[in-house]
């Protein structure tokens, strides 16, 4: 009996060994494919350099815009106002004014076993709702963690961070600054059955502060229309 079993045992062991060797080989190959830290370092340096260059260009564009705006102002006041309004709505122009600052942070509720922790963190939809509420209450300019939101800004959950304006990653806590009538903005969030009440249900920490003076920067980069074209009139 035992003599018969013996070769089977060896075969099994050989098989296991073979499998493990393969796994081992593959994982060590993976390690070799991971880029060395040096590569990441050069990349970060390059990014830093480019960022500086970009910021300089951004400043230059801003200065040029202001010079052009002065020309507009010298022509007529209406024109200058129209220019400001369109720039602010487009999200190009940095603005200042009264408003509210809303901070959203993940729940600090202690989870009991079996509860889904997913329900207790801030989601893209929560942020989306708060933003929508602020817009409905007449917010004129909004930023999320310092990033100006424009007509095409999306709010996307990627793991614990939120993605907006295509590639801008922001981690919690989320701070939304909105310029508008502070009372109206605050009230809209605290409505009965409103956003704050819903979020508090899940223990998400919401703080709303009225501010007499907020500053919201313009959208970084340039907003370009690649697919949309103007409709020629007439």
């Amino acid at each position: 009996m035992k003599i018969k079993q013996y070769p089977w045992g060896v075969a099994l062991v050989a098989l296991t060994l073979g499998l493990m060797l393969t796994v081992q080989y593959r994982s060590s190959k993976e390690i070799n494919e991971t880029p060395p830290i040096a590569r990441v370092q050069t990349l970060s340096n390059e990014i830093k350099e480019k960022q500086e260059g970009r910021n300089l260009l951004q400043k230059r564009a801003q200065q040029l815009r202001e010079r052009l705006d002065k020309k507009a102002a010298s022509q007529s006041e209406n024109l200058s106002e129209a220019m400001d309004t369109s720039r602010i709505i487009a999200g190009i122009q940095a603005v200042t004014g009264p408003g509210v600052e809303v901070t959203l942070n993940d729940s600090n509720v202690e989870l009991s076993q079996g509860q889904d922790p997913n329900l207790y963190v801030v989601h893209d939809e929560d942020v989306l709702k708060v933003l929508n509420e602020l817009k409905a209450a007449g917010a004129e300019a909004i930023s999320l963690n310092g990033i100006r939101l424009i007509a095409t800004s999306e709010i996307r959950c990627i793991g614990p961070t939120i993605l907006t304006n295509k590639n801008k990653r922001i981690p919690a806590p989320f701070t939304i600054a909105a310029i508008g009538n502070p009372q109206t903005l605050e009230k809209s969030l605290y409505l009965k059955g409103g956003v704050v009440e819903q979020l508090k249900f899940w223990g998400i920490q919401v703080q709303v502060h009225k501010k007499a003076n907020l500053e919201i920067l313009g959208c970084a980069g340039v907003i370009t229309l690649e697919y949309a074209q103007p409709v020629s009139e007439g």
Binding site: R65, L68, K71, A72, Q75, L79, A82, M83, T85, S86, R87, I89, A90, G91, I92, A151, I223, L225, Y227, A228, Q229, P230, V231
Partner: peptide, 30 residues
């Protein structure tokens, strides 16, 4: 705009038109 008054107002209007497009104040097709 530096060339003269009519050119200046034309340049400003062009800029305004561009801003209007981004802001959403004009029709767009695509």
């Amino acid at each position: 705009a530096a060339k003269g008054r009519p050119e200046a107002s034309e340049a400003v209007l062009e800029e305004l038109q561009k801003n209007h497009q981004i802001a959403g104040f004009t029709e767009l097709k695509g």
